[in-house]
Design a binder for these strands. Structure first.
Lengths: 299, 299
DNA sequence: CATGTAATGTGAGTTTTTCTCAACGGTGGT
DNA sequence: ACCACCGTTGAGAAAAACTCACATTACATG
């Protein structure tokens, strides 16, 4: 295909000037000085080796060739503008689908969804529970929220939201009967955890200075759940002491349905927002900012 | 109107890459490196804040949004290309209308028209006689050929072709009877000139060192014609001695129908090509070059 | 399974284009 | 006659685009 296209920006300037009948007006529309537009038009005239405007003192009048060019070009530009506006609408109007572990969704995100919709109305967030590994590479998902440990996957963008803090929690009844006893009496209770995070108890115990062997013994009579969600239900029901991320049980702590008298410790994992490729970066960053704010101010 | 147009050169790169399904192929078509195209596409993706291609190892595949954009954009670009090609055809196909004083046309240009059409076939020259002042500002004229003296008009482009040289000429019979007599015996003959160039005789006589007063006396019995054309016919008919631009009577000198034994002198006028605004500069310069060559080699 | 080939992506630096600023020149209204 | 407005232009500054060289990835082949 021959390079029969003239300089496009010159064409843009010409189109505006021809439509508005004035270099100055075109310059305003294009947010440049009138000198710039004048030059672009000159360049186009040089390209076609003909004059496109008659300089008629006050303003401009199209020549025969200018009229012909403008007729075709304005149509094409209208089409171009329409296509781009349509695409923008499409992109901006698309819902932002966020995958999120079920427990985090139910216990942390859903209670905040209303506020999110109010504060980020343009995002049109669509939250859904992800079972197992979050994978925003799935076509129908814009991003995933998850606790993950470094190294970050390299094939998608990872935005850190907050460090993960975990701690032992229990129903108030259990905690009460432990308050007068030594710290490691904790191990006399049934220890609950999830199959997906076997390192949680050791990490926490180690950070708290508890004896590893005692923990190993204690876990033998403990119970493991498939999902964090069941684990928490078990803890709420008073079945034992659970280990869980602070964020997920935040609401239960505030309502008093769970207590965590033994404190929390950071892990090497982070709460991260994983952006699928092709996801509008702006939306992702908006959401990340909102999440970060939500975590730090109302944690 | 909102500036809803993306960077057009990025759009051009995208259109080519989408159409050809390859960054490298697009780069070849646009005569740039693949890096340049890659960057332009990135810029466009940044503009829309979405990805337009899936990078699928070997080549590229349009995403949903990319497909949508390309559908609209390729159509617009096709229209743009068509408009510009049409305009180019229009401009290049337009005949080049050259106005020319009748005598110059008849005695100098017309004998050379055949060669001109052969050597500059793309010009499609259309020569016509201009009465009175040549004015390429008239809409239907591309350029004018004329002897004019400085200063040049400022509202059109002036290309100098050659200096004007004028001289006294006469039919061979008249010249013969003067050869044995002194130079200023010339003034005994009937002096012929044109109403449009009353200064021609004095200029020539002065440059030749002839007596001004004698000239004034001689002209009182001379005759003035409205056009150079009639003047030359009179000289050919042996009515007297005419003063004329060398170029116009060149053919008559060579054929021996006129002689100019007294030589020629330069005036301050020039043979110029006056280009109307809007006339393709390339055509004008082509013609000017040809004219200059024709004047100097076959004068 | 290493290796080669062909494709895209990217950092740094350079070239080219484009823009702005400030001045000039012409036109029309008051 | 003056003023306000508009387009043009030269010089220098700013921005965009490009090139080069290399990295990276996927597919094909020996």
């Amino acid at each position: 295909m021959l390079d029969s296209l003239p300089p496009l920006n010159a064409l843009k300037a010409f189109e505006a000037a021809a439509r508005l009948g004035s270099v100055t007006a075109a310059a305003q529309e294009l947010s440049v000085t009138h000198g710039a537009v004048s030059r672009q038009i000159r360049a186009l005239e040089a390209h076609f080796d003909t004059s496109l405007f008659e300089r008629a003192g006050r303003g401009l009048v199209l020549t025969r060739y200018g009229r012909q060019l403008h007729a075709g070009v304005s149509e094409a530009f209208t089409g171009l503008r329409a296509s781009c506006r349509a695409l923008n609408r499409e992109i901006e109007g698309a819902p932002f689908t966020l995958a999120c572990p079920g427990s985090l969704l139910a216990r942390w995100l859903i209670p905040r969804l209303d506020r999110l919709h109010r504060e980020l109305p343009s995002l049109r967030l669509n939250a859904l529970a992800s079972d197992g590994e979050p994978d925003p590479r799935r076509g129908d998902i814009s991003a995933a929220l998850a606790f993950i440990a470094p190294p970050w996957p390299s094939d998608m963008e990872v935005i850190e939201i907050a460090p993960e803090t975990i701690g032992a929690v229990a129903a108030p009844g259990i905690a009460e009967r432990l308050t007068t006893r030594p710290f490691d009496a904790l191990f006399d209770e049934t220890l609950l955890d999830t199959a997906s995070r076997p390192q949680a108890w050791p990490q926490w115990a180690h950070a708290c200075g508890l004896d590893d062997d005692a923990l190993v013994r204690a876990r033998q009579s403990g119970q493991s759940f498939e999902h964090l969600y069941y684990l928490l239900e078990a803890a709420l029901a008073g079945l034992g002491v659970a280990i869980a991320p602070r964020l997920v049980i935040e609401g239960d702590l505030q309502s008093g349905r769970l207590v965590a008298p033994w404190g929390f410790v950071d892990t090497d994992a982070r709460l991260c927002l994983l952006l699928a490729r092709g996801t509008p970066r702006q939306s992702g960053e908006q959401l990340a900012t909102w999440l970060r704010h939500e975590v730090t101010t109302r944690a």
